[in-house]
Each structure stands twice: as C-alpha cells, then as structure tokens.
Deep mutational scan, measured.
Amino acid sequence: MASQGTKRSYEQMETDGERQNATEIRASVGKMIDGIGRFYIQMCTELKLSDYEGRLIQNSLTIERMVLSAFDERRNKYLEEHPSAGKDPKKTGGPIYKRVDRKWMRELVLYDKEEIRRIWRQANNGDDATAGLTHMMIWHSNLNDTTYQRTRALVRTGMDPRMCSLMQGSTLPRRSGAAGAAVKGVGTMVMELIRMIKRGINDRNFWRGENGRKTRSAYERMCNILKGKFQTAAQRAMMDQVRESRNPGNAEIEDLIFLARSALILRGSVAHKSCLPACVYGPAVASGYDFEKEGYSLVGIDPFKLLQNSQVYSLIRPNENPAHKSQLVWMACNSAAFEDLRVLSFIRGTKVSPRGKLSTRGVQIASNENMDAMESSTLELRSRYWAIRTRSGGNTNQQRASAGQISVQPAFSVQRNLPFDKPTIMAAFTGNTEGRTSDMRAEIIRMMEGAKPEEMSFQGRGVFELSDERAANPIVPSFDMSNEGSYFFGDNAEEYDN
C-alpha cells in the first residue's frame, strides 16, 4: 500500500510504541512475548500442572481467558453494579484439565481477579502490559475465525453469508486497541457500523446529549479505520460520505453494504499476525530463551520457528480426527482463516481442507461434555516452508469459486491468482447506482469489472525454506488448481455463540 510509510507498523501498534527502528520493534515485541511466557509459567505453578498438562491447549485457553477477564475493567465495573446470582464479580476462573488415573478430569478453578492481575503485572515488570493482553485477544479471535462461520451475524446486519472472507476479527472485544483495529476485516468494521446506525434509528437519543457526542466521535473513528483499509480513492470518498452524514440511517447502511461487497474484489488491507497460545510461549521462556534479547516478529519467520520446536497437546472428542484438529489450530496460529487453501497447503506441506470436510468441533470443551471418553493427542503445528504475512489485500483475480465463501483475504505475501467468483459478486451490483453516491458507485463498479483474471497478485513473492531466515531465496510455489480455494466452501461450520 502506498501510504505504508505514514502508518505505524503493526509491531508498533502491538507494543504501543512511538516510531521505533526494526531492532527496537523486535525487542519490544519480544518483551511482550516474554511477559506472556513468564505469566503462563507462574500460572502453571499456581495450578500445580504437570509439564504435559501445561502444554494442553484447553488449559492455555482457560488461563488466557482468566487474565483477560481480570483486566476487563468495563465488564468488571458492570458486574459490580449489576450483581447477578451466583456470579462473584471479583473472581474469575474456568475449567482446568488434569490427568488422573490414566483419565482426563475437569476441575473448575476460581481465583481472585486481583490475584491474577498481581501475577500478570509481576510477570511483566510491574506494568499492565496491555500489548500482551491484546495479543491474547487476537489469538482467540484468530481461533474463532478458523472455527466458526459468522453466517447468522452477517444475515442479521443485512449482509450476504458468502462475504465471510471479510469477517476477520469479528469476535475481537471493543477494547483491543490499535492492534485489534489493524486485524479487523472490512466486513467486521461494516458490521460494527451498521449495528451502531441501527441503534440510532431505533433509539432517538442515541446521537443526542453528552453521551451522543461520545457516540458520534466513536462512529467517526470507526469510519476512519474502515476508510484506511480501502485502497481505492472511490471507496475512500464513499467512506467520507458515510462519516460526514448528519443523521446516519438506511442510506448509510446501503452504502456500507455496497462497500463491503466491493471489497470482495477491490480488497481492503487487513493486517495478519501470528499470535500463538500462551502454552507455546511459556515452555520456550522456561527453556531459557530470551525473546527480548533475541527479538521477535509476528509477521516473519519467528512464529514458524517457534511452532517448529513446540509440543502442544489437545483434548480430542471420541469421533474427532486429531489431524483435522491440528489443521484448525495451525490455521489459527498463522492467522489464515480466509487465505486461499492452495497457498496454505503449499506452505504447510500437507493438504489443507475446507472447514466442512474437517471432523472436528471447536477447541474448547463445553462444561456439560462427558470427560470419560476424552483422549488427548499432539497437535501437528509444523510447516514445510515459511512466508511473510501481508497486510495488503493483493490485486484481484477471477477463479472458480464456491457456493460458500466467494473470495479470499490473503494472509501471506505469496504470488498467486486470487480466487473470487466474479459473476456471483457482480450480480449483486445491478441497477442500484442512484442517489448521492452514484458517481462513486459507478466508478467502483467500473474498477471491479476491469479486474483481470490473468493478473498475478504479489508478483514474484515466494515462500522460503525454514533454514532461509533472511528470506534470501524465494520459492514461487505451484498450486494444484483442481483443489478448492475457499475454506468455508459450501460450508456447515458451527455458528459462533458468545
């Protein structure tokens, strides 16, 4: 993207840094990872977990959730003011799984939030270390993106479920800051804005008074975040219109849905970061690795190297396929839920299948599930090659597409044709070009129609051997075009429920 120079890199967003050079960025990201790792080690000690239990991804998720809940100030305040039966607002906890007599047992633990905050700050040299908290939120978000298709949420806001490739980060909490905003897809931002506008339509006082002023500035800020994701002048001009509207209503909703559809071809720039579970960072720190000293990046080879040398386990339900569970977590670790499966298959070195073909449910185990038949197995999170994460949407291309997802959002900077089903997408653009945004709409449609099938995206960008740390010898991959490109292809993934 041309304006790259004016933006802070995501590592800076990730670490609240002012302008830093590459070495400083690597050190501050490393410091953040160190903090998460030290916190995780301490929690495993508190909970008396064995090494194996500490490497269980379900335990990692519970521990991450506990610290996120302990620092969720708004919710904590709300819980104190609106006490609900049987919930102690000062405590947080969740299921911890232990191996007892050759069987997995679930144990519900409860801790004072104050105590968890103390352990977290102690692991982070006394700081609140917001960057580390956001990092864990993005890992949870990436896992949700890989596990669930947001059909219901899309339909509720009037969008087409086939636009799911635009929904990265749709389950990120509001408090995820600049680093969170960077990884949100165009569809996620559109959905947040539509929800806001709908509230304004239904509630006369939404934009009024002292609160209304705050609401208005939040609305304009979200519009600017979305505008910054678009790469064409016409899309940005249309966002200006939406932002400046005196009284946002149905016309703005129409414009936003139009823009979301246009992003299936004229893709937005959305950041991709490899955020790993805390149970990967903990053992690495415990083994003596100093992330701050060595430096770390979320968008280069580092996460690949770390996963190459990590042992992570997962509980497996009786009829689940461990290899499929591994694929789910591998995609989440690489922030690749909406990437082209052919690119992923090449990088991973084994075939990556669409969601609907995987015999696996989510990673988390519900409290009512029976533990008797639970097994555990090693997650295979290694890769054959590594590639640089991208934040450009890439230019655009036609490809055989599917009944489910009709476009992709690249996660890796790797040369390819970008699949999208042009006739299906263009069919949504018939007729409606009147109104105050008509010239911009016409211009956007013209650009979409001009998108050429034979153009290559990320020209000359390749993948790298894991021994090639400096990215000196790019390998331009070859793809098996007979395979499906979309992950949520004609899909039956479970729906995400809060």
Rank of each mutant, 00 (worst) to 15 (best):
D372S: 08
A131M: 12
D491W: 11
Y487Q: 07
M196R: 04
R106Y: 11
A218K: 07
R213F: 05
R400K: 15
S269P: 14
E210P: 01
D290R: 02
A234N: 10
A260V: 15
L68P: 10
Y111Q: 09
T130W: 10
T151A: 07
Q149K: 09
L344D: 07
Q12N: 14
T396H: 14
I116C: 15
I119D: 12
A278K: 08
I425L: 08
M374D: 09
W386T: 07
Q4N: 15
E339Y: 03
S482L: 00
S28P: 00
G268R: 00
I138F: 07
P173V: 08
T6Y: 00
G300W: 10
F230R: 00
E449R: 06
K91L: 01
A2P: 00
A401S: 13
I425Q: 02
E443A: 06
D491C: 13
F479C: 15
E18F: 08
G187D: 10
F464N: 00
A153Y: 06
W104Y: 11
S60G: 15
K305L: 04
A337L: 06
E210M: 11
A403H: 12
N334V: 08
A129R: 14
T157A: 14
L344H: 06
F71G: 08
D51V: 13
L47I: 12
N247H: 15
E14D: 12
F420S: 15
P477R: 00
K87G: 05
S359R: 15
E53F: 05
F420W: 03
D145Y: 06
I41L: 12
W104R: 09
K87N: 03
I475C: 08
K422Q: 12
T62I: 00
R121D: 06
L154M: 08
F479R: 10
H140R: 01
S274C: 10
M163D: 01
M440G: 12
D255I: 08
V29A: 14
G485S: 10
Y97A: 08
G435Q: 05
F206Y: 12
R355S: 08
D88Q: 11
T92S: 08
N319S: 12
N395R: 14
M440E: 07
M447I: 15
L418K: 00
G177S: 07
D340R: 03
S287K: 06
V242A: 08
N370C: 10
G431D: 02
A22H: 09
A85Y: 11
R208A: 00
N211H: 00
L344M: 07
R389N: 11
E244F: 01
R267I: 01
S287M: 09
T430K: 08
A401H: 07
T45V: 11
M137A: 03
I33R: 00
G362K: 06
G431I: 14
T92I: 05
E339S: 00
Y313M: 07
P419R: 09
S335H: 05
F488S: 04
S326N: 15
G93P: 12
K87Q: 06
P303S: 11
G462K: 03
D51N: 15
H140Q: 14
G460E: 01
R75S: 00
R55S: 06
W120V: 06
E292S: 09
N59W: 05
V242T: 09
A403P: 06
N125C: 15
R117L: 13
T157L: 01
E495Y: 02
G404Y: 06
I194P: 03
R99H: 09
N202T: 13
R38I: 06
V270A: 13
N21Q: 03
F429M: 10
R382A: 05
R446Y: 00
P477L: 00
I25N: 00
R99S: 04
Y219A: 10
N125Y: 13
V270Y: 06
L133G: 03
H135A: 10
N144R: 00
A411F: 06
G93V: 01
Y313K: 01
S438R: 01
A286I: 03
F291W: 13
Q405E: 07
E443W: 03
G5L: 06
V343I: 15
H272R: 06
S482A: 00
M13R: 01
I388H: 08
T433G: 09
R75L: 00
H324Y: 04
G54F: 02
V476W: 00
N397A: 13
W386Q: 08
P161N: 01
M105L: 14
G349C: 07
Q311D: 01
L108T: 12
F338M: 10
G126W: 07
I36R: 10
R117P: 00
T134F: 08
M32G: 06
G200Y: 11
V155R: 08
R162V: 04
G282N: 04
V414I: 12
S402C: 07
T232N: 13
C44P: 02
M189L: 15
L172Y: 02
K305E: 04
D491S: 05
R400Y: 06
I57A: 12
A332F: 06
L56S: 12
N125K: 05
N211E: 08
A451E: 07
S359N: 14
Y10R: 00
R470K: 14
Q231V: 10
R74P: 01
R400Q: 04
I388R: 06
D439C: 00
E494W: 01
G187Y: 12
R195A: 04
D480G: 06
T433Y: 13
R461M: 06
N334I: 08
P453T: 07
E53T: 11
E220R: 09
N211A: 14
N202H: 15
D290F: 07
L466F: 14
M136W: 01
E244Q: 07
G362C: 03
M189Y: 05
N250E: 00
Y111L: 09
G169D: 03
G349E: 11
R162M: 05
G282A: 15
V343K: 11
P277C: 08
L298I: 07
T62P: 09
E252A: 10
E434M: 08
R384T: 05
S367G: 12
P89S: 14
L328S: 05
E14S: 02
T378A: 14
E254V: 07
G435H: 03
R470V: 00
K305V: 05
S367A: 14
H135L: 03
R348E: 07
L56K: 02
N247P: 10
S176H: 08
N309G: 14
Q311Y: 02
G228M: 11
F230H: 09
E292Y: 05
N142W: 10
N205L: 04
R174V: 04
T130K: 15
A153P: 08
S274I: 07
D127M: 11
G180Y: 05
M163A: 05
R106K: 11
I33N: 06
S383N: 14
I116K: 05
G94A: 03
L276N: 12
L276S: 12
I63V: 13
L264V: 08
D240Y: 04
S335I: 07
V190H: 05
R74S: 12
K91Y: 05
F39Y: 13
E24W: 02
G200Q: 08
M222I: 10
S274K: 02
A427N: 14
V29K: 01
M167D: 05
K184G: 12
A387Q: 06
E495A: 00
Q415L: 15
E114Y: 13
F420G: 01
P318Q: 12
S359F: 02
L264D: 02
Y313F: 11
T424V: 13
Y313H: 14
T134S: 14
D340K: 02
E294W: 01
A284Q: 06
F338R: 05
S9D: 00
G126F: 03
I197V: 13
L154H: 00
S297Y: 04
Y52W: 08
R361N: 07
S392M: 05
G185F: 04
T92V: 03
A403E: 05
V67N: 15
G17W: 03
A251E: 06
K305F: 14
R384M: 05
S467V: 11
M371K: 08
L306F: 03
V363L: 15
E320D: 12
A428M: 06
V270E: 07
I365Y: 02
E115W: 02
R102C: 11
D491K: 01
A22N: 04
I119S: 06
G158F: 05
G404I: 04
M447R: 12
T188F: 03
H140E: 14
Y487D: 07
R243S: 04
R204S: 01
G393R: 08
V280F: 02
I41C: 13
